[in-house]
Design a protein around this nucleic acid. Structure first.
Lengths: 209, 209
DNA sequence: CAGAGATCGAACCGATCGGTACGATCTCGG
DNA sequence: CCGAGATCGTACCGATCGGTTCGATCTCTG
């Protein structure tokens, strides 16, 4: 998008800014993403958050208005980022829907083994924070996942792609929950096998292309 | 177990109690279970909690020592209750492991449609509260689920019962997450179909009895 | 250089939190 | 009926929370 193009050819830009607010905003967002994911939305106060980012409270509040505003912006960005990440992993696996599905779960499996892994940030947020805007981001996040998985189901010739898509979504979120709360060991691999079994069964039932 | 049998035939019971502390404790536990599940562990303070139960703070703290203590006791009881509930539903479905598995997901599906449904209380708690004791209760809860599902996998003659058990556990928790955050409609039914498909595939691969 | 706007740092605010203390009241066993 | 123990209601505590305010820089633009 834009980064240092704060104004365009003397256009009626707000006024004339300084010190690159965009950069400041991005820095806050990045640090908040890390620390709020690790410690939980209510596990770190605004004061500590500002100290960690190296920014004053006034700056944070000027950019996001509210802690909830920051949380919402952070979740929105994170959802887009990880959704794109998964979709690209699937696309990079070639044209075979089976390979694409396997790639999705392999990617998830790698994530589970990251020491910083704490489950799905959007689901966690919706669980902790009962604010409507946050819940909306989470629902939309699951929609993105569902789109990806339903697309794979369609290309695999499943009898009922929306159904298989939902079932695969459950597997994705279930694997994430189990990895977060019941141990990481082998979760990605086990989930991948289950997903491929479901895909095969659905393709066998329906018409392979 | 016991209810009004505060002492047994003049045995050396602590001292001589009054007003039935057990009843008080149970009442606190029950009310806390409802309200802390609906509003979240940090969504209701001790003062409000006491007001809702109709009990003084001193009484609550005498019984549970700490808010965390109350949370832990409440989760422990709830985990045992819902695990037994699921296991009984499976047992009541007869001897066929397929029927037992179907019964588990039908039972879950009914739960999802309850307006008070807010996801798995234990997983929610572990997500919100970063206290070790709480996380331990959640892990043990998932162990209970895993035992039930692995047992079904064994009786169905799956090639690798522990593997299928974990995969079914992912499906259970995934269905719960999806129902809570992406809409209830049909989730139980869809999950049941997926579970039966996995069971059939695993039994076909392995040796049916 | 002058001024607009971004940032800082620290003080400050009211609210709420978990937890404690205490005197009054109640219930029951001996 | 008396005393032990459970309970109540309320006041209170220190800590922390999200959020506001303000004067002092700093940086860029015109």
């Amino acid at each position: 998008m834009h980064r240092t193009d704060r104004y365009h050819l003397g256009m009626p830009v707000p006024k004339g800014s300084t010190i690159d607010p965009e950069r400041t905003r991005a820095a806050i967002l990045e640090a908040a993403t890390t620390v709020l994911y690790e410690r939980g939305l209510d596990g770190v106060g605004v004061a500590e958050l500002c100290a960690l980012v190296g920014v004053s409270k006034e700056t944070l509040y000027r950019h996001f208005g509210t802690k909830d505003g920051l949380v919402e912006a952070m979740l929105r960005a994170r959802s887009e980022r990880v959704s794109r990440w998964l979709a690209e992993a699937a696309a990079a696996a070639g044209d075979d829907p089976h390979d694409q599905l396997a790639a999705v779960f392999d990617t998830l499996g790698e994530w589970y083994e990251d020491p910083a892994f704490r489950g799905c940030a959007m689901v966690n947020a919706a669980t902790q924070h009962h604010v409507e805007a946050v819940r909306a981001v989470t629902t939309r996040h699951l929609d993105r996942y569902l789109d990806l998985l339903t697309g794979i189901a369609e290309r695999a010739g499943a009898a009922d792609p929306p159904l298989l898509g939902r079932q695969l979504l459950m597997l994705v979120e279930g694997a994430t929950v189990v990895a977060a709360h019941h141990g990481t060991a082998g979760t990605g691999e086990q989930a991948r096998q289950a997903a491929l079994a479901l895909l095969s069964a659905a393709a066998r039932t329906g018409g392979g292309d």
